[in-house]
Computed example of a mutant assay.
Amino acid sequence: MKQSMAAKITKAILVIIILAIFTSPFILMFLASFKTQSQIMSADNLFNFTPTLKNFVTVFQEHSFFKYMLNSFIVATGAVGFALLIGLPASYAIAKYQLQGLGVVILIVKIIPGIMFLVPWFMLYSNMGLVDTYTGLILSHMLIALPYIVWIMIPFFESLPREIQEAGLIDGCTNVQVFTRIVLPVAAPGYMTCSLLAFIHSWNNFMFSLTLSGNDTKTLPVAMFNFMSYAQIDWGAIMAAATIIVLPVMLLALLTQKYIVSGLSAGAVKG
């Protein structure tokens, strides 16, 4: 009994330490968003300070952050949506027909640094008039979303019992109907998981948006970069903007936590 209690106490201490390590940057960022510039730069005001909403007023009134939030939402949602339309059938076909070579090609595309695509994309987009458009950003962000969806869903589809799919064919369903009516409802935890991960990466993407966006389609990470200048860095506004960027995806992750856990665990082992 003593050993069991000691093990529980040790486990609790380790959990607290790990939580402190991973959450301390977010806590400090959140606190800094309510501080003045001088309070942020002083170590004496780490927790003892008078909160102010000036940084959030600056972010929303002087920099039109609602517009940038809408831009980020449109781009991330569009990229994930189109990636699901392509990635789910592709990953199902790879899993069903064991097209490992095609899977390796998609993995190679994921491994290649995204910066290698920027110059060709910019030249192509400039000729096609896609710079500073939602279409151009969505297509570029699909390079992030599509490999995530394919590589998470391949093992998930492989783990599904073939008997379920064969039963649908026996009942008169076509392959498309088996996929849409039987496989997709069962695979909901899997594609909810990869959709959330792809959405987060698209939401936080800076490099593609910096190069291919403009005044009309500027996203949140690029807008936050505007608070940095040669002469001064507005740390308060940066912390407030970072808090605004992080909170939606954190809330989304918390609300869909059970689907993420079940989705990752279900696709981890073939059954």
Rank of each mutant, 00 (worst) to 15 (best):
Q165P: 07
E163G: 12
Y134F: 13
P161F: 08
Q177A: 13
I152T: 07
G101V: 12
M153W: 06
V183K: 05
I182C: 04
D171S: 12
G190M: 07
L130V: 09
G172V: 09
I112G: 03
Y125A: 11
I182Y: 02
A188C: 10
G129Y: 04
V183L: 07
S195W: 04
N175H: 13
I115V: 11
M123G: 01
D132L: 13
L118M: 12
I115P: 06
V150F: 08
I149Y: 01
L139I: 14
C194V: 15
L137I: 10
C173Y: 09
T133A: 12
A167I: 01
G136W: 05
I152E: 01
T174C: 08
P113L: 14
L118R: 05
V186F: 15
I144A: 14
V176F: 15
N175Y: 13
P189R: 12
I164W: 14
C194L: 10
M123L: 11
I152F: 01
I154N: 00
M142S: 07
M153C: 03
V104T: 11
S159Q: 04
D171F: 13
L139S: 04
V176K: 05
L184I: 05
V186K: 02
I108D: 02
L196R: 02
L160D: 02
D171A: 12
L130F: 14
L184E: 09
E158S: 11
A145S: 13
A167Q: 01
M128W: 08
P155M: 03
V104D: 06
P120Q: 10
G168L: 13
D171W: 09
M116I: 15
Y134Q: 11
S126N: 10
G190Y: 06
C173T: 04
